[in-house]
Write a protein that binds this DNA or RNA. Structure first.
Lengths: 182, 182
DNA sequence: TACCGCATGTAACGGGTTACATGATTGC
DNA sequence: GCAATCATGTAACCCGTTACATGCGGTA
């Protein structure tokens, strides 16, 4: 059994207020880019389907000088579908980290080349850790009602802990490889 | 630009010795299930392509009472293609953890329902942590040459650190939500 | 008798990204 | 004059899983 997460991601954003496809993309980039993103290629067809299935209603807002906005609002059924999904247990998520695959075949290249790979990997997550600080500030500004903030901060904390673990692993692994070099 | 990781995963396994599609699947399950898996729907077509592109050669081993084995062996070009890829820098990997998406819309359901979600999430990674011990033992048996072992243990260590971080996050988050309940 | 392991493969489907098409306004 | 922002959408891909088809031999 396979469920479409993007569908629920969009349903979820709409639950916080009426929005257009364009708004949805921007919102994800602004406040959830640390763990989620959606492309227009997903968003627009999904909105169409949500509308067809009676989970959202569409209103067209005319604008002058700018294209029309197609604003979607959740129906009661939409809210219910979302809540159902929120209560369903999550399933295991396999990482498929490319660095692990490369390291798995480590002996094919030199120890130094492996060290370089890990160092580059480490840099990615060090940057991510500093980026998280910016997102944290952004969401503290953005939340309209009190209720979302604690949950949003949990997603930040998740990123902090995981990134720190990845950095620690990088340091450990490099140290190990450097010992092998002697 | 988009590269096919499965292709290189298979190329990598073949670099450790001639193998059939069936062997490849079993090998991944046995020694890399903590971070990688491939389905037959990927493996067989990829092997066909590797052969067509001159990266692997195919030999058919007849067996009695069992189906023929189509054994693939890397060519020199195959080895080179693999080494090239191993040296290419890895790119950022966005998690798309369903639990974070659900938590993001946490206020839609009760605090207790959110706690339940996190507890279930935590259980998954506690189990994963104990499973890692088994895999660790398996790979200590399985490695034929000395060279791979340290790298394989690094992939295990990766899992240990990340899973521990996820468990810690679960505990912290549950504690936070329980405080909100009062 | 029924299922599991061995072993190959394909077809259908669903998920997701990227590139493209359109077109007005605003700012450098 | 050029790029960016606003705003919608589609088509072509690639990636990946699942289900199915085939068929022998051993075990419970």
């Amino acid at each position: 059994m396979k469920i479409n997460k993007s569908r629920y991601a969009i349903l979820g954003l709409l639950s916080m207020g009426p929005m257009s496809g364009y708004d949805i993309k921007k919102k994800f980039e602004k406040i959830a880019s640390n763990f989620w993103n959606e492309s227009y290629g997903q968003i627009y067809p999904i909105l169409k389907r949500l509308n067809a299935e009676g989970l959202a209603v569409k209103t067209i807002e005319k604008q002058i000088g700018k294209p029309d906005r197609h604003v979607y609002e959740l129906t009661r059924q939409g809210h219910e579908k979302l809540m159902e999904w929120l209560k369903e247990p999550v399933d295991r998520h396999i990482g498929r980290h490319e660095i692990l695959l490369k390291l798995f075949f480590g002996p094919m290249i030199s120890v130094n080349d492996n060290i370089k790979q890990i160092q580059q990997f480490q840099k990615i997550y060090e940057k991510e850790l500093t980026d998280l600080k910016t997102i944290k500030e952004t969401i503290k500004m953005d939340h309209n009602d009190q209720s979302h903030l604690p949950y949003w901060l949990m997603t930040i904390r998740f990123g902090e802990l995981v990134n720190k673990a990845l950095i620690q692993w990088s340091r450990e692994s490099c140290a190990l490889l450097e010992k092998m070099n002697d």
